[in-house]
Amino acid sequence: MIPLTAAVIGEENIIGQIGGEAEAKKHLADLGFVVGGTVTVISTIAGNLVVNAKGSRVGIGREMAQKIFIL
């Protein structure tokens, strides 16, 4: 498993694991980031990521993205 920050831009990936505090994890889940779900990195800017999850576009900080692992 590799962190989301290392994903190829434009490729659809499946989330394998999400780490971090329970609170942040839950917030990610509410926004559509769940284990088994898909996530696509649309672009990176200054280390932060713009990703697509469950059809919506979400901006996510690098610290957060490093805790999302893709298969």
């Binding site: 971090g20 942040a24 917030h27 990610l28 926004l31 932060n48 713009v50 919506s56 576009r57 979400v58 901006g59 996510i60 900080g61 610290e63 957060m64």
Partner: peptide, 12 residues
Amino acid sequence: GEPAPFIMELPD
């Protein structure tokens, strides 16, 4: 403590 991690929907 660190500032809250950034997660925000970027609406259409």
